[in-house]
C-alpha cells in the first residue's frame, strides 16, 4: 500500500515534469495553425501562417541548411582524420590539443562570437559572407564530431586493426579509407547528426555574427518573436520543430543503440 502511494507520487511528479516540457510545445504547434490564438482553436485551423513564414523567411531557412551542410562537410573533412591522429598518437600534445578544441563547449558562444568579431570584423568581404558564420559553427561543433569519433576508436582498439592492415601491406592512406573510416562509422554518424542539429539551432554565436544579408533560421526566429504576431512566431517555431525533431529522435535512437551494444 505504501509502495503503491510512493509509486503514484513519483509517477505524478514525473508526469508533471513531462507536462512542463511538452505542453508549451503543443501550445506552440497549435498556435501556429490557429486562425486567431487569442480566440482559441475555435476560430479555425489554417495554414496561412505557415505559408506567410515561408514567404518571409524561406531565405533564412535555406541559408541555415547551407551552413549546416557546410559545417558538416568541414567537421568531417577536418575532424575525422584529426580524431584518428589524436587517438593513435596519444601522448601529452594530443591531450592538450583535445583539451583546446573542447574549450568551445565550456566558453559561452557569446564570448567566441565577440572574439571572432574583434579579430575578423575588419575583413569586410569575409565579415559580410555566410562563411563568417560557418567559421563560428565549425569551432562550436568540432568537439562533438572529434569526441564522438574518438569514443568509437577507444571502444574498438583501432590501433590493432590499423597495425593489422599495415602488416598486410596497406599504405596509411589506404588503411584510413578501408579500415579506419568504415570502423568509425557509428561515431561519424552520431557526430554528424549532432553537428547538423546543433548548427541548425545555433543562436548564441550566430546572432552576433550575422548581417542583414546572412540571417539563419534561429536568427529569423528571434526576429519573428520580437516583431511578428504570435501566430506567425508559432508557425515559424512549428517549421523549426518539423526540421529538428526527426534529427533529435534519430540521435536518441543512436544513443540507445550504442548503449545496447
Amino acid at each position: 500500500m505504501r509502495d503503491r502511494l510512493i509509486f503514484l507520487g513519483q509517477l505524478g511528479f514525473t508526469l508533471l515534469v513531462a507536462a512542463f516540457l511538452v505542453v508549451p510545445v503543443i501550445l506552440s504547434l497549435s498556435a501556429g495553425v490557429t486562425v486567431n490564438y487569442f480566440r482559441g482553436i475555435q476560430s479555425g485551423i489554417t495554414l496561412q501562417w505557415v505559408r506567410q513564414v515561408w514567404e518571409l523567411y524561406a531565405g533564412e531557412i535555406f541559408l541555415s541548411f547551407v551552413i549546416a551542410i557546410a559545417t558538416l562537410v568541414v567537421t568531417l573533412v577536418v575532424g575525422v582524420p584529426a580524431a584518428y591522429a589524436l587517438h593513435v598518437r596519444g601522448g601529452k600534445l594530443s591531450r592538450v590539443i583535445e583539451e583546446i578544441i573542447t574549450l568551445p563547449l565550456a566558453i559561452p558562444g557569446l564570448a567566441i562570437a565577440l572574439a571572432l568579431l574583434l579579430t575578423y570584423g575588419g575583413f569586410g568581404s569575409f565579415r559580410r559572407s555566410w562563411l563568417f558564420i560557418l567559421a563560428g559553427h565549425v569551432i562550436f561543433t568540432m568537439p562533438f564530431m572529434v569526441r564522438s569519433v574518438m569514443a568509437v576508436f577507444a571502444s574498438i582498439d583501432i590501433k590493432t586493426l590499423d597495425e593489422g592492415a599495415a602488416s598486410l601491406g596497406a599504405s596509411p592512406w589506404r588503411r584510413f579509407r578501408n579500415v579506419i573510416v568504415p570502423n568509425a562509422m557509428p561515431g561519424i554518424l552520431a557526430g554528424s547528426l549532432m553537428v547538423v542539429t546543433l548548427s541548425l539551432g545555433e543562436f548564441n554565436l550566430t546572432w552576433m555574427l550575422h548581417t542583414p544579408l546572412t540571417k539563419t533560421l534561429p536568427v529569423g526566429l528571434a526576429d519573428a518573436y520580437a516583431s511578428m504576431r504570435l501566430e506567425v512566431a508559432s508557425a515559424y517555431t512549428l517549421i523549426f520543430f518539423v526540421m529538428i525533431v526527426p534529427l533529435l529522435v534519430a540521435m536518441q535512437m543512436f544513443a540507445d543503440e550504442g548503449q545496447k551494444r
Binding site: I101, I107, L118, M142
Partner: peptide
C-alpha cells in the same frame, strides 16, 4: 611514413583551431 600521415591528419584541425579560435580568443 605513418608519422607523417598522422601529422597530415592533424594539420587541418590545428590550422582551423588556431585561426578561428585561439587567435580570436587572444585578440579578445
Amino acid at each position: 611514413s605513418h608519422r607523417t600521415f598522422v601529422w597530415i591528419c592533424l594539420l587541418p584541425l590545428v590550422v582551423v583551431t588556431i585561426a578561428f579560435f585561439l587567435l580570436p580568443i587572444a585578440q579578445l
